[in-house]
Structure formats: C-alpha cells, structure tokens
Design a protein around this nucleic acid. Structure first.
Lengths: 340, 340
DNA sequence: AATATATGCTTAATCGTTTAAACAAAAAAA
DNA sequence: TTTTTTTGTTTAAACGATTAAGCATATATT
C-alpha cells in the first residue's frame, strides 16, 4: 500500500550487492573500483525503480542543505517580490533552494524566521534587515553562519552586503527636479532609522542646501510605516498648505508614492501641471498611471545576483573576506517632473 | 573556529547524561520518567547553549519534512503570486514550510520541479498544472504522494482539487455586458486546452448563444501564450475591423487584459466610450487605470487556504477520500462596462 | 614460486534524532 | 526477607546516504 521512496537499500537488495557499492556507482566517483558490468546493472535497476537520492539524508551526512534562507522586509512590496524572484532564479542556477519569509518590518518576526530557518539548517542567509534586528545579525555572525545583507545594512556592524548608493541616487533625482525649475520640493519618507532611509533623506537635504543655501529649506515629512495610508494624506495636506506650498514631491519609496498619488488624484491635482512627482523604485501600478513617473530604478537584477554569488562563495569558502558591494541606481526620466 | 550547531550530544556531555535522556526531556514526552531535577538541569543547559533541534535529522527519522511543494504556472502573474503568498501564510500557520517554483507553463520545467521537490522529500504538493503535465500528476498519484491541484484540473484524472466555476463566472460577466446593452462582444483567450480556459470560453459562447441565438455569433480569438504581446494586438485589430466591429472585449485573464489595454491606449480608444472592457482577475496595474475595470474576482484567499487544508489533511490521514472543491467567483462591477 | 599490486566488493562508522528495550537501583508488596 | 513494581537512566537500532578501511581474489612483478 504505502510506497516508500526507493532507497539505496532497495537497489542493493534487487541487485544482490551491498549498499556501499550502489552508492559508489550512483555518485559517479571516479576513484571507485566497481566493475563496468556491475555499474551498468546498478544504473539500470536504479532507473527502473526510479531512484531519487534522499537529499535529507545527504544533508544530514554532509552538513550542507544547499538551501538559502531569504528574509525580506515586506513581500507585498513589489520591489522585494522582484528581488526575491531574482534571488530564487540565481540560486536555482547555482543549485540552491531558497526558503523565504517576510519579516513585515518587525524585529520579532525576523527573529522567529531566523530561528526557523536555522533549524532547517540553511547554509546561509540573505537578509533585508528591519529596524531593531542589529543583535540578530550579530548573533548570526558569531555563529559563523554565512550572511549577506541587501538593500540596507548597519554601518556599525561589519557584514557582507549588497546595496545601492542611496545618497547619490537621492541627490540625482532632486537635481533633476531643480534642473526642471522646481524650487519648493517636499519629501515624504518613512521615519525609519535604517541607513538606506537616512541616506535618501540626507541626499535630498544636502542637494537642496547646495542649491538654495539658506533661501529655501528642505521640507521633509517622516511617516510611520504602520499608519502610512493616513499619514501620507496628512503630509501632503501639510506640504500644500501655507503661503509657500510646495510644487514637487519626492516620495522615498514606491509604496509611499502609490499612496500619495491616489490622494493627489482625489484632490484632483494633475501631474505634472499642478505638482511634480518623483519617486524611488517602480511599481506595476505605475504602468497605467496617466503620467509616466520620473523615478530611481535600482539594479534589482544585479543586487539579487550579486547577493547570491557572494553568499554561495561564503558558503563554499568560509575564510574568504567580507564583500561589500555598493551599486549605482539609474534615474529614469518620465514626464512627471517636466515643467510645462 | 568553526562552531557546529549544538546537538543533543553536546547537551548530554555537558550534563553528563545520555543522549536519550536529553531527547526525552526536550521533546516533552509525557510518558518519560526522567526526574524533575534532571529535566530542569537539561532544559537549562539547552537554553544556555541555545539548542535548536536539527530538523534535517528529525525529518530523516520521522519521514516527514513538514514541507509543501508548490508549483505555480507563472509566478510573474500577480494572480499566482498572491495565491502563493496566501498558501505560504496558511501553511506557516499549520507549521509547514513551502518550497515553490514556477513551471512557466512548461511541462518539462514542471517535471524538473517535481523531481527536485520530491528529492527534498516534501510531504505533499499543491500544483497549478500546466498543459501536458497529465502524466506527471498520474505518476504522483501512483506514488501515493499527497497532492492538491488548484486553478485547473484534468477532468479525466481524479485528484483533490480546489477550483472555481469558470463557466458560471464567465457567463456572469458576459451577461453583465449584455445587460448594459453591448451586443458585439469579442473574447480574447489563450489557445490553451486546459479545462479552466475551455470553461471560460464555453461560458462566453453559451451565454452569447442563449441571448442572441443565431443573430449574433461569438467572436473568439485564441492566442498563443508565448507570443501573446503581438497576437493580442493583432486580435484587437481583427475584432475592430470589418463591417461590424465589436463594441466590447472580454479578456480571459489579467495578463491578456493588461496587454490589451496598453494597445487600446495606443489606438487612442477610450474605455468605455469607444469600447467596453471586462476581464478575469485583477492586477495591481489596474489600480491606476483611468477607468475601473469590471472583472471577475476569484476568492484567492479561500482557494489558497482550502488547498493547504486539504493537503495537510491528506498528509496526516492518507486514507481520507479525495476532496474536490469548486468555489464561485464574484463579479466586480467597474465603469468599463457601462454604456453612456 | 613467492611477493607485491591491482581489482572488486563489503564492513562499519558517521551525521542528529527518536524510541523500544534493557538494566540497575530504589520503593512497595508479599 | 524475598519478590514485585516503580523509577530513572542507558543501550542500541533505525532513518538513508557517504566513505575510510578491510578483505578476498586476481593479476603483475620479481
């Protein structure tokens, strides 16, 4: 009734030989001294029985699972979903499986995921760290578990990481607005202490400062991740109120941009005539937005691939030094930042 | 240098007791007769050493991995991405891990995935079967591997499945168009022999037939999945040409709708004034489309959850009979099918 | 012919966990 | 006091694969 998976033992019994012999043949070791005839027979039987090696057993023996644990901050964000996909593809190419989970930007969930994936003996981690996970990362380092951070990192913890130059990208897009003639540029960002967000904000502030000095000051609103829908609206209201309403908004992420654009539509403001909009990252949702958005495009492909490559290198050569990769992001000029 | 994961052995050595005793304590077996004092000590040491049971070893022993293999037809389609997400969440709740892959609608890739996941000893499969995978499904059945098909199934292979009533849904949305006064309704579908697609087409054809008899015949164009971008445009051109151009298009999937709408924008046709549009499924991209689409919303949540529940039941009670679940989909009325 | 080497396969240990069975010592029943 | 039962712990086999070491037998070298 219950058909167990066929094992080396089954083949050995069938052929009338020891398990070891079968193992030697099927693992194709050049130094094995099994006779041609026997090898052929064993391979035949293996095929007819449709033998598939039990990777669980192999893993237990070898201590390697060929599995990567991936923890992203928020899988419902297409940015992370895409990265996850790329990582998965690249990992598959290198013969690794990816098991992943979303921390939903919560340190507690992140910890739970790390424990879970550790107990499943992943060979290493690729992590988009969220706020307050510093010690989790330190722990992993202490356990000598191979690890690559992406998108964000902790400047005071030395780790492998693959990130982009958020400061530069942010400056680039603000410059674009300024070049188009916009002066009162607001920014809506998350009140997130993580490095990537701080860098985006710093890029914005310094660029404004460099251009306008003390004549025009930056106009930044920071938003709580867990109440973003409401707070984005309030933020926009705030930026538009007063004597000198802003004429352009820079959204620090695609999720903020989506929320913002929906509200701007509700206000019956037209982009870019009434207000210019620029944003970090893309979203499928922008495909059908009437006005193609000027935005920063991160090299997702490169980030994902590099992360996997660095990780698998660490796994196979643990004594390799740490790799810290910082990529440049592209500015995609749409029509949402053109002054007409 | 190299810190191995701590094992029962480490704890046993530390406490000065046998591995078995440690195992009995840490697996919290009610029938164990280990003394309170010893149990307490072992638990303490386990905690300080930060012991995490090695699930690989547990799996090898138990023959269960608490892992589900998920194979979707196309992970870049948000429909499947969402389902994957829901399945993942539900599985996690039931203490299962999901390992998944995308067959990209290719039988060969599907086979590869099944072999791969089998060798990783998944306890069961949830599969969105693609064209030509009939024998793969039959094979799994013969090996007594628990299995649930979703979205599609093979009428001539008896399996667990969770699907929706595509015929009914299709009829419902065509009826909506007819009720709004549209008469020449075209449909663009995939030339896919799978049941779900045939049912959507049949729903369209029979509804047209029922309403208009022989006065107006259905106007269906079937499209090759691998060349859909081009063929959708050709199809729309075709439907719009001639003496009696169509006044409404029913797209059989969200991917077709997205391609179609982009082309319709290029043609400078306005929805619904120049042409009405209805579609199966949603897409994030529709969020910002100027005209909210009338579409069929599948109960993704229910499909995903039911699939996991049926599968885990099959895993724990293999002698349970097959479950075949057919859900109804909802018609979401937008503005893309209103005659003005 | 005696010894060395090569060939072909088997034995047995190992990975970390589970668990039935064994065993010794203590407590209870006779 | 002897026997039985209970209590607390250990032994050992098992899951399926890998692999160093062992052991015949056959072939090659002196």
């Amino acid at each position: 009734m219950k058909k167990r998976q066929v094992s080396l033992k089954d083949i050995a019994n069938e052929v009338g030989v020891s398990i070891a012999t079968v193992s030697y043949v099927l693992s194709d070791r050049k130094d094995s001294r099994v006779s041609e005839a026997m090898a052929k027979k064993i391979k035949e039987v293996a095929k007819t029985l449709n033998y598939q090696p039990n990777k669980i057993a192999q893993s237990l023996k070898s201590g390697k699972t060929n599995t990567i644990g991936l923890i992203v901050a928020d899988i419902s964000n297409p940015f992370f979903a895409n990265i996850a996909r790329i990582i998965e593809d690249e990992a598959t190419k290198l013969n690794y499986t990816v098991i992943f989970g979303s921390s939903d930007e919560k340190a507690e969930k992140s910890l739970h995921l790390i424990d879970f994936l550790s107990s499943r003996q992943v060979d290493g981690f690729i992590i988009v760290p969220s706020e307050g996970t510093d010690n989790q990362i330190i722990q992993l380092k202490q356990q000598n578990i191979p690890l690559v951070l992406i998108d964000r990192y902790f400047p005071n913890i030395s780790t492998n990481h693959v990130i982009i130059d958020n400061f530069e990208a942010s400056g680039k897009i603000v410059n674009e607005l300024i070049a188009s003639g916009y002066k009162r540029i607001g920014m809506i960002a998350y009140s997130n202490p993580l490095f990537h967000m701080r860098e985006r904000i710093r890029g914005y502030q310094e660029t404004i400062q460099n251009h306008f000095g003390n004549n025009i000051s930056p106009n930044l609103v920071e938003i709580d991740f867990n109440d973003s829908r409401k707070q984005v609206c309030t933020a926009i209201d705030g930026l538009l109120a007063g004597e000198n309403p802003i004429d352009a908004i820079f959204f620090a992420t695609n999720t903020l941009a989506i929320l913002g654009l929906k509200y701007i539509d509700e206000l019956s403001l037209r982009v870019p005539d009434d207000i210019a909009i620029v944003s970090f990252d893309e979203g499928e949702a922008f495909d059908f937005y009437y006005c193609p958005l000027t935005h920063i495009r991160q090299p997702l492909d490169e980030i994902g691939k590099k992360a996997v490559q660095v990780l698998t290198q660490q796994i196979t050569q643990p004594d390799m030094g740490e790799k810290q990769i910082c990529l440049k992001a592209d500015l995609i000029k749409g029509k949402s930042s053109i002054r007409r």
